[in-house]
Design a protein around this nucleic acid. Structure first.
Length: 511
RNA sequence: CGCGGGGUGGAGCAGUCUGGUAGCUCGCGAGGCUCAUAACCUCGAGGUCGCAGGUUCAAAUCCUGCCCCCGCAACCA
């Protein structure tokens, strides 16, 4: 696999960025950094979803035009990701003119193909919600939100012949067992698909909503927001030209949260089939975060804002916690106390301390110059092997999105290096002059271990890797290439900087 | 018979698909070291893997039944 086109959902801008969005971003950013460092042709797409009824309403409530509102919120998302150090390649907005053009082109093609027809929809409509409900969604025949009895309404709209592609979709899912992963979500989709698919209403009359993309074949309607939103994925590739599209789009890896499984596993692929595009390579579905055991919600007031966490703990610590403490695909619980525990246990005591004690000894015993490995012993190899194993394990885990496991592997290696210091006791040997060559060799092994740690940690802990590289006196791009050869570029006599604690220990979680 | 997730040493979790000495982090107890961020290292205590049956040479893992917990209005990854 030498190509990868990574996507996050484009976030709907009726809420501010929170823990959930951030998790998705961190996951994809980590994948992007990882694949880039492995030399893969990598593209990372994110953005904002800005059309639709809810945005129009929210804008009105804020006393702004929809476009003004969208500009403001989109900028907020973008700046939040910039502050988090997210390395996206393209930030798409569904209000971008190129996107609008792409959407209209594709919708026109699907229409020409005969997969869009004009029809009438009859359903139970709640005027308060401005949407239709199915009988199942109603509570005692009333709108669950407004407690009112919905009207039976008819509306004429355009429909996408989703039903036409059901068989083909089921066949694809069955032929590609890991196309939707983890498996529980694949099973859920196959469950949906046991029932006949209904065609999808893909228009809204302008009499009801104007904040959307106009249908290319009927100016009286705008496109249903989900079709508009899903097409962001191909849109961003298409604007880069046909060659880019042909090369990268089939390597698409979508990362989403479980709430939008149906749109991505059913609406999207059937629409792609109709449009004549290849399907994406994988749909990767993750779970939700609870906060201190409770559902995160505005009404409970427990929404975790990424900016607050970064301000309090730093980017890498927050990021580390999200990756280390969750299993991709399962729900996870965010507890600040646990974050502090991870910070102290893994980042400060294990990795940070290894950096500290190694550099400290290089300075104390060799004036900051990396000594030559003039006196090797067999135990030295165990440290090198630990990092080599870690690298192989990380590769295995990353291909399965097992971020927590990957980090575990990395920290097993740094832990091995910490034990090595006690086992070889260079600080004891240093008391006798004749042992100094051996002391130097031990420190050389440790400096190499630091370089390797930085290299392996870079996708997960980018700031930390940069700081380690700086402390080691290596060029800033030293972590860009991944792998165990990271160490080989440090010649004897190379000067390293004096240690600065990477992760000052935190005593207690703030209240 | 609504759907889904979960029940593994004191806490939080992994392992369950592809049965075969029950693992990780934290906490706890004892000892050690001093290069280091009150860190680090070693050893130890602590589990009938929700319950009951079944399959098997062998079950946390597969099968059956049962019990308990959580989520399923909206916001929303």
């Amino acid at each position: 696999m030498d190509r990868i086109y990574l996507t996050t959902p484009i976030f709907y801008i009726n809420a501010e960025p929170h823990l959930g969005h951030t998790y998705t971003m961190v996951v994809v950013d980590t994948l992007a950094r990882y694949w880039r460092s492995r030399g893969a042709d990598t593209f990372f797409l994110t953005g904002t979803d800005e059309h639709g009824e809810k945005i129009a309403e929210a804008a009105a409530a804020a006393g702004e035009s929809p476009k003004q509102f969208a500009d403001r919120l989109s900028a907020l998302f973008r700046s939040t990701w910039d502050e988090c150090g997210i390395t996206y390649d393209h930030f798409i907005r569904t209000t971008d003119p190129e996107h609008v053009r792409h959407v209209q082109e594709v919708v026109a093609r699907v229409h020409e193909r005969g997969d869009i027809y004009f029809g009438e929809y009859e359903g139970l409509y709640c005027t308060g919600c401005e949407r239709y409900y199915t009988e199942k969604e109603l509570v005692d025949g009333r709108c669950p939100d407004h407690r009112t009895v919905p009207d039976l309404r008819r509306e004429q709209n355009y429909f996408f012949r989703m039903s036409r592609y059901q068989k083909q979709l089921v066949a694809h899912i069955e032929a590609n067992p890991d196309w939707i992963r983890p498996e529980r979500f694949r099973n859920e989709v196959l469950g949906f698909l046991r029932e006949p698919l209904e065609d999808l209403s893909i228009s809204r009359p302008k009499s009801r909503l104007t904040w959307g993309i106009e249908l290319p074949f009927d100016a009286a309607f705008v496109l249903y927001v989900w079709i508009d939103a899903l097409l962001n994925y191909t849109s961003a590739a298409a604007v880069r030209g046909g060659e880019f599209f042909a090369r990268m789009w089939p390597a698409a890896e979508h990362v989403i949260a479980k709430d939008i499984l149906k749109t991505h596993a059913i609406y999207w692929p059937t629409f792609l089939m109709s449009a004549g595009f290849p399907l994406y390579r994988h749909l990767n579905v993750h779970g939700y975060w609870t906060v201190e055991g409770q559902k995160m919600s505005k009404s409970l007031g427990n929404v975790v804002a990424p900016r607050d966490m970064i301000a309090r703990y730093g980017r890498d610590s927050f990021r580390y916690f999200l990756l280390r403490e969750s299993v991709f695909g399962l729900d996870a619980d965010f507890r600040e106390e646990a974050l502090v525990g991870r910070y102290n246990g893994d980042l400060a005591n294990n990795l940070g301390n290894l950096v500290s004690r190694t550099l400290s000894m290089v300075h104390r015993y060799f004036g900051g110059e990396v000594p030559p490995a003039s006196c090797p012993e067999s135990i030295d190899r165990e440290v090198e092997d630990a990092f080599r194993s870690a690298e192989a394990e990380i590769d295995g885990h990353m291909s399965k999105l097992a971020f927590g496991r990957a980090l575990e592997s990395l920290f097993r290696a740094t832990d091995r290096a910490n034990k090595y210091i006690v086992e070889t006791a260079p600080f004891t040997l240093a008391k006798s002059k004749s042992e100094m060559p051996r002391v130097g060799t031990i420190l050389r092994v440790l400096v190499d271990a630091l370089a390797r740690s930085a290299s392996l940690a870079a996708p997960f802990l980018p700031d930390t890797a940069d700081r380690m590289v700086q402390l080691l006196g290596l060029p800033a791009d030293a972590t860009e290439r991944y792998g165990a050869d990271a160490a080989s570029r440090i010649p004897p006599g190379h000067r390293v900087n004096a240690p600065v604690p990477l992760f000052p220990r935190l005593d207690a979680p703030p209240a």
